[in-house]
Amino acid sequence: IPATGGPIGNYLKLYEQHYSKQAVCFIHLTFIFYCLCSYPIYLMPLCDNLEMVYITKTQKPCSFFVRMMLLGSVGFFVAVGFSFLTYLAVLIGAVGLLVTSTYPCFMWVSIKKPQRKSLMWLLNVLVGSLGASLSVLLVVGSALRLADNGLHANFFKP
Rank of each mutant, 00 (worst) to 15 (best):
residue 40 P to K: 04
residue 63 S to M: 06
residue 142 S to I: 03
residue 92 I to M: 09
residue 82 F to N: 02
residue 146 L to P: 04
residue 86 T to K: 07
residue 95 V to P: 02
residue 90 V to H: 09
residue 86 T to M: 09
residue 51 E to D: 08
residue 117 K to F: 15
residue 119 L to I: 12
residue 46 L to V: 12
residue 92 I to E: 00
residue 137 L to R: 12
residue 61 P to R: 08
residue 62 C to Y: 02
residue 94 A to C: 11
residue 136 V to A: 13
residue 74 V to P: 00
residue 95 V to D: 00
residue 52 M to A: 10
residue 134 L to F: 13
residue 48 D to K: 10
residue 49 N to I: 07
residue 111 I to S: 07
residue 116 R to Y: 14
residue 136 V to P: 05
residue 43 L to F: 11
residue 137 L to K: 10
residue 148 D to L: 12
residue 64 F to D: 12
residue 83 S to R: 03
residue 62 C to F: 04
residue 72 G to Q: 02
residue 143 A to P: 00
residue 93 G to Y: 03
residue 103 Y to Q: 09
residue 43 L to E: 03
residue 83 S to K: 02
residue 116 R to G: 12
residue 138 L to Q: 11
residue 71 L to Q: 13
residue 107 M to Y: 14
residue 140 V to I: 15
residue 43 L to R: 01
residue 137 L to Y: 14
residue 88 L to E: 02
residue 54 Y to K: 00
residue 149 N to G: 05
residue 122 L to Q: 08
residue 60 K to Y: 06
residue 83 S to T: 08
residue 71 L to H: 09
residue 60 K to A: 09
residue 125 V to G: 00
residue 151 L to M: 10
residue 102 T to H: 13
residue 67 R to N: 11
residue 54 Y to D: 06
residue 131 G to W: 03
residue 84 F to H: 06
residue 129 S to L: 13
residue 103 Y to T: 12
residue 77 F to G: 03
residue 52 M to P: 00
residue 130 L to G: 08
residue 58 T to L: 06
residue 94 A to G: 11
residue 71 L to V: 13
residue 57 K to N: 07
residue 111 I to L: 12
residue 57 K to F: 08
residue 45 P to C: 01
residue 130 L to Y: 09
residue 138 L to R: 07
residue 46 L to I: 14
residue 89 A to T: 07
residue 83 S to W: 04
residue 102 T to N: 11
residue 73 S to E: 06
residue 70 L to P: 00
residue 132 A to F: 15
residue 77 F to V: 03
residue 104 P to M: 06
residue 140 V to C: 08
residue 125 V to Y: 06
